[in-house]
């Protein structure tokens, strides 16, 4: 077998092993990289920053464990941003399996803030600073229903409290009191929010998308239907960078931590494609 043939027939086990090493080594020995925020991420950050005190940010946790490593850092970053700026936050889930993840992010970030809070006003308190509405059957029910009355869609919150008795809910009744809704999604739920919530109630939509889905949302950024977007782990890392540089919030930044391995893996995959092509063209030339 010639070297060119060998180049086109590397055993898949070696490819797997190399990818494993290429991803693993930079996790152990990372190189410092600062992601540069792109306009869609900056727009999202600025839109959240500009939320007036009487309105709320709604985060829709629409992903399940299968996309958790990619999307969970976005939820952390958004919550840190919102809580640092004392924005009111409402959280819901379109995916049932998103409930546990939303609860995980909420408990982690509120603990981060409350562990350094010195006064009651500084603390992040359930019902006052945020409400976790939970999940409701069928996506159409919460997406359309929140336009009329959020408390009617979610009679009780995730923790079992009557939603309309919570202090924050005295002012946050429906989409009229929502400045921005960010759907962090492993699937198509941002499209549902655009189609149903935006066309019927005019609510502004932000997106946190898996990289696989991200390219599908660009036409909606171009049309102004999407205010801003984080695409995949890169988008999460860019948002974390903004939260760090503009707000000085120093929680664990999982997406930024991953950027060393991400870089190495991309280079490795590009290299394997190039090697495969070199072999392919050399063999084709020989045959001719």
């Amino acid at each position: 077998m010639s070297i060119w043939e060998k180049l086109t027939k590397i055993d898949r086990r070696y490819i797997y092993l190399m990818l494993l090493l290429v991803v693993m080594i930079p996790i152990i020995v990372p190189f410092k990289l600062h992601p540069k925020p792109m306009p869609p991420v900056e727009n999202l950050f600025n839109a959240i920053d500009a939320i007036p005190p009487e309105k709320a940010l709604v985060i829709s946790v629409d992903y399940s464990p299968d996309t958790e490593p990619e999307l969970h850092p976005m939820t952390y970053a958004l919550l840190r941003h919102a809580f640092a700026r004392h924005k009111k936050v409402g959280i819901l889930c379109i995916s049932l399996l998103g409930l546990g993840l939303a609860q995980d992010a909420l408990s982690t970030v509120t603990n981060e803030f409350n562990s350094v809070a010195t006064t009651h006003a500084d603390s992040i308190i359930n019902g006052r600073d945020y409400v976790f509405w939970g999940w409701q059957t069928m996506p159409l029910v919460p997406i359309l229903g929140m336009g009329e009355n959020i408390a009617k869609v979610f009679p009780v919150d995730y923790y079992g409290n009557k939603t309309d008795t919570l202090p924050m809910m005295k002012k946050i009744k429906n989409y009229n009191n929502v400045a921005l809704l960010v759907s962090i999604a492993g699937g198509e739920s941002p499209f549902w929010y655009i189609t149903y919530a935006q066309t019927s109630f005019g609510v502004r939509i932000g997106v946190g998308s898996t990289a696989v889905m991200a390219t599908d949302f660009y036409p909606y950024i171009n049309s102004g239907q999407v205010t801003g977007m984080m695409s995949g782990m890169k988008g999460g890392a860019e948002y974390e960078e903004l939260v760090l540089t503009k707000l000085g919030i120093k929680g664990r930044r999982k997406a930024t931590e991953a950027m060393s391995s991400q870089t190495a893996a991309h280079l490795w995959i590009m290299l394997t494609i190039v090697l495969g092509n070199i072999g392919y063209f050399a063999l084709r030339r020989r045959k001719k």
Partner: peptide, 20 residues
């Protein structure tokens, strides 16, 4: 979470092999 996330993470290996 570990079961679901790992199940989809192994796609990285298949994708790199298929791309090559």
């Amino acid at each position: 979470v570990p079961l679901g996330a790992t199940m989809f993470s192994i796609l990285a290996f298949f994708m790199s092999s298929a791309a090559y």
